[in-house]
Design a protein around this nucleic acid. Sequence first.
DNA 1: CGACGAAGTTATCACCTGTAGACTTGTCGG
DNA 2: CCGACAAGTCTACAGGTGATAACTTCGTCG
Lengths: 192, 192
Amino acid sequence: MTRSTPRPRNAAATRQAILDSAVVAFTRHGYDGVGVREIAAEAGVTAMLVNRYFGSKEGLFTEVVDVSFAPATMVPADPAALAEQTARALVERTGPQADHLGPFELMLKSAANPRAAEIIRAGIQKHVGARFAAALTGPQAGERAELGLALLAGTWLMRRLIGTPGLRDADPESLVARVTRMLAVVVEPPSR
Amino acid sequence: MTRSTPRPRNAAATRQAILDSAVVAFTRHGYDGVGVREIAAEAGVTAMLVNRYFGSKEGLFTEVVDVSFAPATMVPADPAALAEQTARALVERTGPQADHLGPFELMLKSAANPRAAEIIRAGIQKHVGARFAAALTGPQAGERAELGLALLAGTWLMRRLIGTPGLRDADPESLVARVTRMLAVVVEPPSR
DNA sequence: CGACGAAGTTATCACCTGTAGACTTGTCGG
DNA sequence: CCGACAAGTCTACAGGTGATAACTTCGTCG
């Protein structure tokens, strides 16, 4: 009943291997910075399989964005400590070692290409935006949520991609405290 | 004595034309998104001249970053109104029409390439960092300045490059007010 | 006025890009 | 046991990449 050999010649497993390889490659080097041959080689297959399973490089990227933005992207549940927890997670994941390879890196590395940017926008709207906005109460939740995302993305950019010294060498606790205060502006509902 | 004909065959003028073309092209499409042929064609010369005058594409990019970050990059003088003025300038320049093509766009579009990112980091340290930090008083001026830059860059990214709807369709005045409050966290010296 | 040097061009190299068609090989149902 | 169908590969194309060497044209100064 249960096949002794899991799959004929590894149909879905190969597809998954390509997707995994693509997640890493696109996040590391951006949409334009990596070729399908490179992705396929890392997965142990030839470049043709990419087009076979995902239609095109763009189709593969679409799926990469989808799976990369799907998991709970540093959005804690409790609204009260949301700012502080988010700030701490950000600082930790953008630290000196930091091999995390999250969706922020994928977004920043691929934003240069307009087609990729459009795909990312769709992914954000589908996954992150809604979830983040749901954690926020009060008016203009969308604007406030995306402004928070902007701070996170910008900090990720300066601290990790560009490597600005003031942020790279900053005391983590001081950084957490300051980011928390900035996030508080958009997290707390405009109680006025 | 003063030569009637300014220069033999347009020596420096051609160089400047290439540089101008490169500023526009690199800012629009990023370091990896444009080729030297395209830049040279826009300047009305052949690709060879780029290598002749700037050594390589990387050398040209270095000079582009230098001239692009050199002008007063939205850093007002008065520290009191600094947050509000900066926020207003940001919102205006990332608006729907917005053909400004500033250094932020250059940075965001080219950050994917590590070599380009390194060049940008040097440019920021040379021009923006020092000037911005000088406008801030108190301890951790560098960290606070770059955190402000991070917010500006992140907002530019989400609002203009990605095009997230919550920020694109936000009321400008509301956005200015909120960014001002976030910037205030890093602008006001830690009076504690 | 004539030649030397700078300014600019043409041709080309070696390599990489995404995609397509035709081919081979493995595996499972009958 | 074998044929059929899917999984995977090979070859190739048409175009683009940055960079180099050799060549032609123009301007100026002795």
